[in-house]
Design a protein around this nucleic acid. Structure first.
Lengths: 222, 222
DNA sequence: TAGAGATAAATTGTATACAGTCGACGAAAT
DNA sequence: ATTTCGTCGACTGTATACAATTTATCTCTA
């Protein structure tokens, strides 16, 4: 383990900053990024900025149009459908391997996470509940101990976060329901029941998807 | 559809060149890339090279070590195992959606591809057989009409190609077997039987995996 | 007024210069 | 001989300058 943190390079910092901005909504879908503007804003030359942009492009968060300009992606309903078609297979797969390979520490991490969610629920702090939920999923994914799976799912979840800010997670009923799912998935992982973990996770993601489709069709009626 | 090809920028050309070199083996696993060297070799400044490197890094083909230098990834047997754990779920998923969504043109593409393989087989040109096989898979993946699936699988297949150059595909029995699988998968897609296509593809990839594991364990004994 | 060119402004693409960092090599000290 | 510092060379990181393109603006014409 490295004790002294490696000095972060500018390109890394710019990358993190832009990614955060996109996911948190500071940069809106469809918005164009101007290298010079970012350069002024962050007091950094264009070189590291351009490298960060190339990375975000590969992450699927930025889109280059034919004439070189880059814009924040604008996921369509169709995109979300495609996203879920992937998530609904891959996260259960991660749960499967997590059940096989999880370490004792990882079990503890999840246990603590679940306890936290319980407490946070009482405070009604939606943002924190959401973060804790994301944390639950990420811990399981990383417990799958498959780097490809980890990277692909985090890619999906990155794009996914465009809608995560929306109302879905604020639906109290949905949260209760999710909590219950999480508990069950946790048990399957603790007891090393891969197939069960997979199926529970699949049902969980599917219910998330249905929830999303309901809300998005409702918002289109408005 | 854009008729006139967008003038390729240098960063794109460098990216393509390096990617090709890595996949084709001109750049060997573990080999370090020196920006200045590439710059001289291609007569291009370091700026576009650096951008290309950032992209290849995200593709999982290059690895940055802690002190900044980049090297070509050296996939371990474990990596291939992880790779297959993903492929064995995702390519069948692609076959599933391909069976649902394939267009008439795509069916024709696959049909032609299968005919070609038949002819090429007689000539014993291993390289061409291999290319045609890759083509078969790629057509199906793109027929799934899910951009996330397409991008993730092509990512996997990119890394996968490190071993594709090996003997596996040169095993004549394996080729015959693969041909048979391909025919069946094609039929399922033509008749729009998603679940059947999925299962056939799964069996197909699994047999590929078993083949690979056999060969790799054999080569370790040598 | 709409449209076609012609300019100018904005923005990206590429090259180059220079600063900072890491590692190898070697000399001095023990 | 081994260790410890320097020092030098090789690279990478970042800034800046300039070229090439694209986009906006303006003017002229029909």
């Amino acid at each position: 383990m490295q004790i002294v943190k490696k000095r972060a390079t500018l390109k890394t910092q710019v990358y993190d900053y832009l990614k955060e901005s996109i996911i948190m909504g500071g940069l809106k879908p469809g918005e164009r990024l101007i290298e010079e503007k970012i350069s002024e804003e962050l007091q950094v030359s264009r070189s590291p900025i351009r490298e960060a942009i190339r990375m975000l492009e590969k992450d699927g968060l930025l889109l280059v149009n034919s004439s070189g300009g880059v814009t924040v992606v604008e996921p369509s309903i169709q995109d979300f459908q495609h996203l879920y078609e992937c998530r609904v297979e891959m996260e259960p797969l991660a749960a499967f391997y997590a059940a096989e390979r999880r370490t004792q520490e990882q079990i503890e991490l999840i246990r603590i996470n679940l306890l936290q969610i319980g407490k946070i629920l009482e405070t009604n702090d939606i943002k924190k509940v959401h973060d804790a939920n994301v944390n639950f999923h990420e811990t399981i994914i990383s417990a799958s101990a498959n780097p490809f799976l980890v990277s692909m799912i985090s890619h999906l979840r990155g794009v996914n976060s465009f809608y995560r800010k929306s109302i879905i997670e604020e639906n109290p009923l949905h949260i209760e329901h999710a909590m219950h799912d999480h508990q069950q998935i946790f048990q399957a992982i603790v007891h090393q029941e891969p197939e069960k973990a997979r199926q529970l996770m699949k049902a969980h993601i599917e219910s998330d998807y249905i929830q999303f489709m309901k809300l998005s069709s409702k918002s289109r009626e408005d």
